[in-house]
């Protein structure tokens, strides 16, 4: 089967050619890459330490020393946002990846096999939906203790539900298509059919939903951290910064504005990139 794959890279090559002509998507990609590079290099390039307090300074508005101002403990906001990006981006990407893998596989199998398997798998999804999220997380924390990996797992384990439903719906429609029946009549195994004929054709909605999941995961992390279940101060994340910013919005608006702008920028970039990818991966859109 490897030969097909080697020859089959053309879908991705085509996608790259098309993406490189979509300036909005390229802009999005550039922003994401920039954010990732900055996050990786933060310990070396950050102007201050992330827990470096200056209580005498207190909250000051942006100045030459502190470009984005300082928070109520006199900590540099730029530094806090840079360190926060490390956490937020990691949570965003890893938890979404977890959700993506589980959700797509679960949905594809349920939708493709159908019948009782589908019924059982989707009832499990329903039960998970019905389970109060808070209780689920608290339970995990109690059993496993507080752990950043657990955080990824817990968020991922909640976010995949919707993904599974979307993919299942797509697959049920695809399953009836004649090209899938043709694959059956060629004698391809179920798994090969799912992998080669079903999943690639669900890419469009999956990509769009993924770009929506990443920011929502980042906010979920903030919510958990706010409850004391996620990241703990003095560590920071964008979500946490925004939460604190909201509390002091009236006196020190820059504490809300700058993390907010950063998160929005990421969100825009992801959406542009997602739309671009969806079009680029659809062979029906023209290459020129």
């Amino acid at each position: 089967m490897s030969t097909i794959e080697e020859q089959g890279t053309s879908l991705w090559q085509d996608a790259w050619i098309k993406l490189s002509k979509n300036y909005l998507a390229l802009f999005g990609l550039a922003i994401i890459v920039l954010l990732c590079v900055v996050s990786v290099l933060t310990p070396w390039i950050a102007p201050y330490g992330y827990e470096e307090q200056n209580l005498l300074l207190g909250a000051t508005s942006p100045s030459a020393q502190h470009w984005l101002g300082t928070d109520i403990f006199g900590r540099d906001m730029l530094t806090r946002i840079m360190y926060g990006g490390r956490v937020s981006l990691t949570v965003g990407f890893i938890a979404t990846a977890v959700a993506l893998v589980i959700g797509v596989l679960w949905g594809a199998i349920a939708g493709f096999v159908g019948g009782r398997v589908d019924a059982v798998m989707m009832r499990i999804v329903d039960i998970m939906y019905a389970l109060p999220f808070m209780i689920f997380i608290v339970l995990l924390m109690v059993v496993f203790g507080r752990n950043i990996l657990l955080l990824f797992g817990a968020i991922g384990a909640v976010e995949w539900l919707t993904m599974a439903r979307i993919v299942r719906g797509q697959v049920m429609a695809l399953r009836k298509q004649e090209f899938v029946e043709a694959a059956h009549s060629l004698g391809l195994s179920q798994w090969t059919i799912i992998r080669r004929h079903i999943i690639p054709n669900t890419l469009g909605p999956v990509i769009v939903y993924t770009t929506l999941t990443i920011p929502s995961v980042m906010l979920l992390e903030a919510f958990l951290s706010f409850l004391g279940l996620g990241i703990q101060p003095p560590q920071s994340s964008w979500g946490l910064l925004i939460n604190y910013g909201v509390e002091t919005m009236e006196e020190f608006p820059w504490l809300l504005i700058f993390p907010g702008v950063t998160l929005s920028l990421t969100l825009f970039a992801l959406n542009f990139l997602g739309d671009g990818l969806r079009d680029a991966l659809d062979p029906r859109t023209s290459k020129d």
Partner: peptide
Amino acid sequence: QMIFQDPYASLNPRMTVYQTLAEPLLYH
């Protein structure tokens, strides 16, 4: 083997002619 009615639905839109024709040959 089978030939289907609707040539718009019976081919995987994300596979080139080459991939479509090579698949049965390689698989078997």
